[in-house]
């Protein structure tokens, strides 16, 4: 269970002032799949980053299964995996095999076991044959699959994805959506794609740093479309 208690985020402005990125929000996120939609700069990414402590609330608090993100950030990040829009900024090692093994370092001590487990992870995402390819030689979709694989490899309880399909073509978008649908853990994602947003049990709409709609995906999408036309 993810809990926001009056959590807000402000950032220092240009000349000593501050601007609000996220107004105080109280939320309980327990549904299996939650989508977040809203315009660029509406605070979507900040909301996601609050969940794993990458951004800390300026006031209020955020907790995951009772762990406060400010004080137990390290433990929180072990529970919460995060997939970024651009897989190239996420993949650290030159090849997929090395990257997934890096993920597994903390849990599997023996190098040979780690190698086998890493290969299994890649194979389960259908990219075993790409294990030794340079990440620069992979297609956008393959890279994003790899990014999801290396994050999911450590079996986090929650997987967060910030616009995971924005950089992808239609075919790859469908692959990634199918993969996310098949994941057993709680998945929270942002997207600009309104049909993707409805692949969820609950949808939040953000506007100007406030949650302006929170409810069923179809209703949220209708509300958001209305909002954009206004």
């Amino acid at each position: 269970m993810i809990r926001f208690t009056d959590a807000s985020v402000t950032a220092p402005g240009e000349d000593g002032g501050s601007r609000t990125i996220l107004h105080p929000v109280t939320l309980e996120l327990g549904e299996h799949r939650i989508s977040v939609i809203g315009a660029n700069g509406s605070g979507k990414s900040t909301l996601l980053k609050l969940i794993n402590g990458l951004t800390l609330p300026t006031s209020g608090s955020v907790s995951v299964d009772g762990l406060d993100t400010a004080r137990r950030g390290r433990e929180v990040r072990r529970k919460v995996g995060f997939v970024f829009t651009d897989p190239l900024s996420q993949l650290v090692m030159p090849t997929g095999r090395e990257d997934v093994e890096l993920s597994l370092r903390g849990r599997i001590r023996r190098a040979d076991e780690r190698r086998t487990a890493g290969m299994q992870v890649l194979q389960s995402y259908g990219i075993g044959h790409l294990a030794d390819r340079s990440i620069y030689d992979l297609s956008g979709g393959e890279r994003q699959l790899l990014a999801i694989a290396v994050v999911a490899a450590v079996e986090p309880a929650v997987l967060i994805a910030d616009e995971p399909t924005t950089l992808l073509d239609l075919r790859n978008e469908h692959t990634i959506r199918a993969v996310l649908r098949g994941l057993p853990q709680q998945v929270i994602f942002t997207t600009h794609n309104l049909s993707f947003a409805q692949d969820s049990d609950r949808t939040l709409v953000l506007d100007g740093g406030r949650v302006v709609f929170d409810g069923d995906p179809a209703g949220a999408v209708a509300f958001y479309q209305e909002l954009c036309l206004r």
Binding site: R77, F82, S89, L102
Partner: peptide, 21 residues
């Protein structure tokens, strides 16, 4: 962006790996 992704994966933080594992 890479630094954020590292932090998100729990990699590269200064506290050494000992207290984590």
């Amino acid at each position: 962006a890479t630094g954020q992704a590292l932090a998100a994966r729990g990699l590269g933080e200064h506290t050494d790996a000992r207290d984590m594992h």
